[in-house]
Design a binder for these strands. Structure first.
Length: 589
RNA sequence: GGCCCCGUAGCUCAGCUGGAUAGAGCAUCGGCCUUCUAAGCCGAAUGUCGCAGGUUCGAAUCCUGCCGGGGUCGCCA
């Protein structure tokens, strides 16, 4: 049986339709067939799988939905795995599956192990997922943290569903902010040499993290930098400082268990005799997408310093953007957009035709032009998708945590991870739709209680392990290897709580698939919380009803089946947690 | 003013890309739990799905128009 039970039955339903003479011939027919679903109904009284086939087909067949449903139901009854078929409501067909069928689901989980629900690699070209891309002007702060975790989780989702991924970080190591950084580092260098530099001037970076950079420059060069030409000195300081910042950022990311495959440098786009930006503009120019023209001033509030002038524009409006966008600043240098076009062009030249950028919500207005640029410069061969992350608000015990940007005292990512751990950070960042604002409470995420989903899910996993440890002591005759447990009489799960757990686990492959398609890792987090909740509830029932406990030393066969169930739950929890990048602990300590 | 996102229980949010009677956790209320499988359990109550139209057998979900909140709007990155 395929891993996805529901997909399996969707296909059986389509086969049944063929058998009763309903087939897709035209493409519109096929589109129609795609609307047919086999899903777990919300209401358990509606069976275990429900299909809308008859409702979807009623109109094109000019028949009453219930008539089609009755014919289809009759055909489905022939399936040995289906023990009950019911036509209900306006024309839904509700199916109940045999115990043997559910037993096979459980056996399938035990056989596939932690890759249960995952899909084999398709062999397609990798998708480029760009995320974080924080400016290398200082340590990462919490604002970067969400994009980092979400981007990594989206990449994990794609890999888990068979799409190879390249994780990429774009280093914005050019521009005015980098010059400010360089000047700041230079001051710290002088400071290290014993000069009294006083306060760091406004506009520069006052953070202490540049002091070690100054010290390192002193250690490497002594005071020799001061004897260099201004250009040479600045270039050296810039180089060393950016490298130091990136070491720091990589280390911050590593603390969150995030590793990029590729780090691309903005400066490298126009270095060593190369000028990707000029190339990109030339490529667009060749397609007649560049022109000199004027843009209308923004409506509503006209800026005081608006200067109506001709500029070099890219016709992004031809590709869905709201207006054309400038590529050159008034001083003749490239805009950020121009170099970003070049960067995406570079990705295309490296062979990527599918790209995903994970950006902060403040860049929302940027998506259209960038997508337009990718479509234009690749001649429609490449496609960019943009995913957004909203802000994170920090709390401590319900009280907002103040962050003063002015003094440079942002809460750093490192501080957060050091305080609550990577697991809590990752899980909580994914426990909300990325596009919705998120409240993060330092206190709440470390609480060991049901109210803390991180703990709740991890604890569920620890409990599965604890049962297995207990079993090896109480019923040593039972082989706890998944392969051995898969041989148990898995149809012997009679209790409704047990069966619910199996049904819920059957839903994991389609949950994972849906999460990947929609780029919504939070669905995985919610799924895991639900599964943990069902498991904990079942566990608690064992307090009242000892006959429901997993280990019954006097009933070895029952114990075997239940240990198979518990082991499967552990597998599914690990399968899901691995996608989130959260540990599945064997015990809570 | 243009564009993007958001609006669901008192609060924080889900809602499986159009399915059947809209869910969970807090908070509230009621009961249980003091050795059992540590980090409590069970149950109850709670809705104009922002508003108004439209498409559909069927809409919280798709379309249009409003209302309200946030973001953004050439020479920042």
């Amino acid at each position: 049986m395929p891993m996805d039970l529901f997909l399996d039955f969707e296909n059986r339903i389509k086969n049944a339709l063929q058998n009763i003479g309903i087939e897709a011939e035209t493409s519109t027919d096929k589109a129609l067939l795609n609307r047919i679903s086999a899903e777990p109904p919300r209401d358990p009284s509606h069976g275990e799988i429900a299909t809308n086939a008859a409702l979807v087909l009623a109109k094109p067949l000019a028949a009453k939905p219930r008539d089609i449903a009755v014919r289809l139901a009759l055909e489905l009854e022939a399936d040995a795995d289906i023990v009950a078929v019911e036509v209900a409501g306006p024309g839904f067909i509700n199916l109940r599956l045999s115990d043997a069928c559910w037993a096979r689901v459980l056996a399938g989980i035990l056989a596939s192990g932690e890759t249960y629900g995952h899909q084999p690699a398709t062999g397609a070209a990798p998708v480029n997922v760009e995320f974080v891309s924080a400016n290398p002007t200082g340590p990462m702060h919490v604002g970067h943290c969400r994009g980092a975790v979400v981007g990594d989780a989206i990449a994990n989702l794609l890999v888990a569903t068979g799409t190879p991924v390249t994780r990429e970080y774009y280093i914005n190591d050019a521009g005015a902010q980098i010059e400010a950084l360089t000047q700041s580092a230079l001051l710290r260098y002088r400071e290290a040499l014993g000069e009294a530099v006083g306060d760091i001037p406004s506009g520069l970076y006052p953070g202490d993290y540049l002091r070690p950079v100054g010290e390192a420059l002193k250690a490497e060069f002594g005071d020799a930098l001061l004897a260099m030409s201004e250009k040479e000195m600045l270039s050296t300081v810039r180089e060393r400082t950016i490298d130091a910042m990136m070491v720091m950022i990589r280390d911050d990311l590593a603390r969150l268990n995030i590793r990029h495959d590729v780090f691309s440098s903005e400066r490298a786009l126009t270095a060593g005799g190369l000028d990707r930006i000029a190339e990109a503009i030339a490529a667009l120019s060749e397609k007649e997408l560049i022109y000199e023209g004027k843009l209308p001033p923004p409506k509503g509030k006209p800026p005081e310093d608006w200067e109506d002038r001709e500029q070099t524009l890219f016709k992004s409006s031809q590709f869905g953007d709201d207006m054309d966008r400038p590529l050159l600043k008034s001083d003749g240098s490239y805009t950020y957009f121009a170099s970003d076009i070049a960067y995406h062009y570079d990705k295309f030249l490296r062979g990527f035709t599918r790209m995903i950028d994970v950006l902060g919500a403040d860049h929302a207005g940027y998506a259209k032009r960038m997508k337009a640029a990718v479509t234009a410069i690749s001649g429609g061969e490449a496609e960019l998708e943009v995913q957004f992350c909203q802000l994170v608000k920090l709390f401590r015990g319900g009280e907002p945590v103040r962050m003063s940007k002015r003094s440079g005292e942002l809460v750093t990512l490192r501080e957060v991870v050091d305080e609550v751990g990577a697991n809590a950070v990752r899980f909580m960042m994914l426990y909300r739709k990325a596009d919705a604002p998120l409240d993060f409470d330092f206190q709440a995420v470390t609480e060991q209680s049901k109210d803390n989903p991180v703990f709740y899910v991890q604890y569920a996993h620890a409990r599965t392990e604890s049962v297995r440890r207990q079993a090896s002591a109480d019923v040593p005759q039972i082989d706890l290897a998944a392969s051995a447990l898969g041989q148990a009489d898995l149809a012997g799960l009679r209790d409704e709580g047990e069966r619910m757990l199996v049904r819920q686990m059957a839903d994991w492959p389609r949950t994972l698939d849906a999460a990947a398609r929609s780029r919504e890792p939070h669905r995985v987090a919610f799924y895991l919380n639900d599964l943990a909740s069902t498991f904990h509830a079942h566990w608690n029932r064992g307090k009242e009803l000892p006959q429901l406990r997993f280990i019954k030393p006097d009933q070895l066969e029952t114990s075997r089946v239940r240990l198979a169930l518990v082991t499967a739950i552990g597998i599914v929890l690990r399968s899901g947690l691995s996608v989130l990048g959260v540990d599945a602990p064997r015990e809570m300590r």
